[in-house]
Design a binder for these strands. Structure first.
Lengths: 120, 120
DNA sequence: GTTGAAACTAACCTTTTTGTAACTACTTGT
DNA sequence: ACAAGTAGTTACAAAAAGGTTAGTTTCAAC
């Protein structure tokens, strides 16, 4: 036994291709509309995925949804006060990521992240 | 444009079901043998997966493999000096995870992390 | 002399995650 | 009238991640 530590909880919340980026974006931009957020994320997250990610983040109490109840819909997403507490580790992760990228570029000519394919 | 930030790099390195736990374990235990590490991780990571995770972590320069070259094999894994720098965000993630778990338990009677299934 | 442990690897399979395309209702701009 | 934008949803498909079983080599214990 030694698995159920804080780390695993945090990873469940933040892991995946988009969650971290969404939180990071909302941490900087205060509040964003659905499609604006969508377009800001590298341009290629589908609405289906974004909707689901946001739903999960709301479920975890990190993101709030403000529906302005207008007829061409106007909905905004923002971090909850608690959601903003993720800044504690997101900043650290961001710092490290920047450093790590430099390390990798300096050390490895071939950024080979395969690790499973045949090398014969 | 706005995707390729430090966060995404860090998530690529640390994400998934096991990487974070492996780093966390090696951060505390200094050096571990393959099967000892395996058994310490909740008991149910397969050797195939552990081998692959370690390979990727080595590829990223975070973990070192020390092969004692004995005939019933004896191999140890440990964090590289650089690997130990992940402590900067792993500690923060761990802290937050512990807090978050308390928040969830206090707030939500049903820990429903589904978010995709039919609700009809 | 069969069993078990060491550190893996290969073939195969299942589950989870992510993505695509089309479509909803309603309104504004052309 | 017709296209486009708003915030999504549904059905379907692909890819990635994770897991199972068995097998390798050599020695030490029973």
């Amino acid at each position: 036994m030694g698995g159920r530590v804080g780390i695993s909880v945090t990873l469940e919340v933040v892991c995946g291709k988009w969650k971290g980026l969404i939180l990071w974006k909302l941490l900087k931009d205060e509040s964003m509309r659905f499609n604006a957020l969508r377009r800001s994320l590298d341009g290629n997250i589908s609405s289906r995925i974004l909707a689901r990610e946001l739903k999960q983040l709301m479920n975890d109490g990190l993101v709030e949804r403000i529906d302005h109840q207008t007829v061409p819909p106007h909905v905004e997403y923002r971090l909850s006060p608690y959601g903003r507490s993720t800044a504690s580790f997101l900043h650290a992760m961001n710092q490290w990521g920047i450093k790590h990228q430099e390390e990798l570029e300096a050390a490895q000519p071939y950024p080979d992240r395969a690790g499973d394919e045949s090398t014969s």
